[in-house]
Write a protein that binds this DNA or RNA. Sequence first.
DNA 1: GTAGAACCTGACATCAGTGTCAGAATCAAG
DNA 2: CTTGATTCTGACACTGATGTCAGGTTCTAC
Lengths: 119, 119
Amino acid sequence: MRIGELAGRTAVSERSLRYYEEQGLLTAERTPGGHRDYPETAVDRVVRIQELYAAGLHSTRIKELLPCMRDQDGGPSAVATPRLVDDLTAERDRIDRLIADLVRSRDTLDEVIRAAGES
Amino acid sequence: MRIGELAGRTAVSERSLRYYEEQGLLTAERTPGGHRDYPETAVDRVVRIQELYAAGLHSTRIKELLPCMRDQDGGPSAVATPRLVDDLTAERDRIDRLIADLVRSRDTLDEVIRAAGES
DNA sequence: GTAGAACCTGACATCAGTGTCAGAATCAAG
DNA sequence: CTTGATTCTGACACTGATGTCAGGTTCTAC
């Protein structure tokens, strides 16, 4: 599929999709004229990338991580090195703390929203 | 207490504390010489502010929200307007989706970490 | 009063993903 | 072939909290 369709189906801007490619997170075939041609699996991958970005991972870390992930189509093509495992463990712990923060913030918002409803 | 102590106790940089004041999120008395003098309650407030920042709220939104929050020392000093309730509800929904993303990302990391441990 | 630590303001830098625009090339349908 | 939609590359802007530095002032303990 072409970039416009991929952007539409993933709700990610074309700009970002080109950026992902630039960062080595996403590859695409090219038409004879140079237009990008994505496989169906790209949809899944872009969604994953977005999730990881949302979790605060940087593109370099995502790039290291992607080959180690169980892909939509089968097993991972690589196994994380001990060094990477350390980094990913730190990321996971950071995300854990972040989730805890978010839950507290959500509770705070809920309380304010509810208090306004009671008046 | 002075800014250095507050920074130490909250693990927030002095730079950020001054920024919070600049944004109207945090107030402080001043010594005759112009140094900031924070009340004990500032510790709690700074922690809250950090949580809300972590949840992706901008300073303007936090500024609107703070007066409506149940403070450490008692009831809220204001009730959210209907307009603000709408905004906060949108924020809450966004945070909900973000938490879901984070959980998925954490699970992904756990899987990669575990896979590396099995080898 | 003096030395050193802590604090003040103001300014500029940074980060990294994304928005946006320009000008050119390609693609698809008539 | 033509036309309009889509895509291409490259460049520059932005955001917004935080880092950092400079030059000066205040505080605290001796």
